[in-house]
Design a protein around this nucleic acid. Sequence first.
DNA 1: TAAACGTGGTC
DNA 2: TGACCAAGTTT
Length: 362
Amino acid sequence: MTDTASLLLNWYDKHHRILPWRITPAEQARGMAPDPYRVWLSEVMLQQTTVEAVKAYFNKFTSQWPDISALAGASQDDILRAWAGLGYYSRARNLKACADKIMAGHGGVFPRELAGLRALPGIGDYTAAAIAAIAFNLPHAVVDGNVERVVSRLFCLTTPLPAAKAEIRIRTQGITPAERPGDFAQSMMDLGATICTPKRPSCFLCPLNEHCLALKNDEPQRLPLKAPKAEKPLRTGMAFVAISENSRVYLQKRPEKGLLGGMSEVPNYFAPGADKADLSRAPFATDWRYQGDITHVFTHFTLVLAIYRADNLPEHSDTGGWWVAVDKLKGEALPTVIKKAVAQVLPTAFNNTERKPADRNA
DNA sequence: TAAACGTGGTC
DNA sequence: TGACCAAGTTT
């Protein structure tokens, strides 16, 4: 084992984070083993998503669907409803497809080989290696954004990302130990998340500070270098909140693929440079009233929607959608941008009505 | 290879 | 306060 791996594992034994999906080194010593289902679920949820955002969703999913069989028994719509708000909804669609494939093609058991994992929907290079290392203790190089940052600094690699990925992978493989590769992978990610942070790294606390070439040669916070990002264009449009004579809201389903694929929505239209007052874009003709704009920032564009409202509509059923009571909207598969649009008209629609015990007598 | 694909938090 | 960032994958 390299000095680096040894130092990092010792640091991890003392300073590892406690996370709902994690088996700690002490628990492993007592014979507990990671559940591949929980490792997989957490890794998919954590793709481009913060630990804090994932915790509640992970707990909800594992309560509702404790194993791969239970998850495969759920419908895609069930899963999208539970995933709503977490973003990158293709992950939820692939989660269902992956569960189905494991049940139908692998006897309900996760493959242990990297290639078998890599072939499953929603599992790419990172997630395949992470599952193999964490769940099966196989010494694969697990390279996520944290590891890219740690390794770039440790070896002072000055090629900008993403071109540097190949070299980072080789360097990571070179320091990955045959013993405890799962803990090693998690130690690299914990180090990146808590010490070797993007902006002001705490190098004085770092177990690798005497080995870090960026710290020796340079300012580590400058690394990794990254290629410049494309500018974010603006799209404009309209969203239509239709309320029936029974105080229900009109929803429809988005196409299965692409932006917010498979999720539910209120009728809307947007495009670069689109008119925000073109009522021919409404799902049906009625007395639409303008309620102000909302702005929502996606990864690759900014969206400004003019919100329109109509009331006391008959609950027609000939336009492909359905009507949902306001107090049931929380349970629908609505992405955040659509919740914003609805909340512009119905500000309390998504309020948390749960009360903490202490509030009950207040 | 580059673009599509969400959201919420931080400084 | 807008830009950047977070355990990436797919096409």
